[in-house]
Computed example of a mutant assay.
Amino acid sequence: MNIPSIGLGTFRLKGQQVIDSVRAGLEVGYRHIDTAQIYENEADIGLALADSAVPRRELFITTKIWTGNLAADKLLPSLKDSLRKLRKEQVDMALIHWPAPQDALPVAEYMAALLEAKEQGLTRLIGVSNFTIAHLERAIAAVGAPNIASNQIEIHPFLQNRKVVDFAKSKGIGLTAYMPLAYGKALDEPLIQEIAARHKATAAQVALAWLLQQGFAVIPSSTRRENLQGNLAARALHLPDEDMAAIATLDRNERLANPDFAPAWD
């Protein structure tokens, strides 16, 4: 199974809120659920998945290794803990959530540990998140580009991350766009609203279709069933070249996820 083009993001969702979101998402057709150790919701997601009638073979579950668990002796035990919480013997993709802060640990160390997790069957695919070109180069040197299924990075109309996108594509590494709606800012953008009106679509569908047509996977988040359904319908929307080009002009390097431990961005 390849990475499904639309997944359900669960950042900032906890407790009953994430349980309800995942349950509704599965009911309307989502099969890719994206979580992370730092979200502190893996156990809640595990509960929602356990209650679902969707067969395991149809699900694609992604989790991410937190920076505190990157050391060679911590990564595998932390992933096993994630699996226990998710109530699964294997995830479909395990990502390094962020490069080690200040590069205190070499990329080769945690990528080798992540590859070991794959070899042990704890995860089917491995990848990275928030990696710069320099970090990608080190990861490729450590485990080879074919072993890196995705780089999950912030991509939306206002931050198009073209240098990293072009580099990853040149190496055959997939890209997953997080915050694809820029925390809702894309929905208020007049250009996107105007394109949406012409296509009788929602602004969210236009923003997501713009990403999907570039070959990215997307992981929008929502707690409302109608939004979950609407986002999923973005797969059926095709934007003509002139709309794609118009949205591309919105790039203003507006980064929303930029914690103090973030790497020096490209």
Rank of each mutant, 00 (worst) to 15 (best):
S52R: 06
S52K: 03
A53G: 02
V54S: 13
V54I: 15
P55S: 10
P55V: 02
P55G: 13
R56T: 12
R56W: 10
E58Q: 15
E58T: 09
E58S: 06
L59E: 12
L59R: 10
L59G: 11
F60S: 12
I61F: 07
I61C: 00
T62I: 11
T62Q: 05
T62W: 10
T62H: 10
K64H: 06
K64F: 11
I65G: 00
I65P: 00
I65N: 00
I65S: 00
W66R: 04
T67W: 11
T67Y: 13
G68N: 15
N69A: 08
L70D: 03
L70V: 10
A71G: 11
A72K: 13
A72C: 01
A72P: 06
D73W: 06
D73E: 15
D73G: 04
D73A: 14
D73Y: 11
D73M: 11
D73H: 11
D73R: 09
K74Y: 09
K74W: 04
K74V: 00
L75S: 11
L75G: 08
L75T: 08
L76K: 14
L76I: 14
S78R: 02
S78N: 12
L79Y: 02
K80W: 01
S82P: 00
L83F: 07
L83W: 04
L83A: 07
R84F: 00
R84W: 01
K85S: 11
K85V: 05
K85G: 05
L86V: 12
L86P: 14
L86E: 09
L86N: 06
L86I: 10
R87F: 08
K88D: 13
K88V: 13
K88I: 13
E89T: 10
E89K: 08
E89W: 01
E89R: 09
E89I: 01
Q90C: 10
Q90H: 09
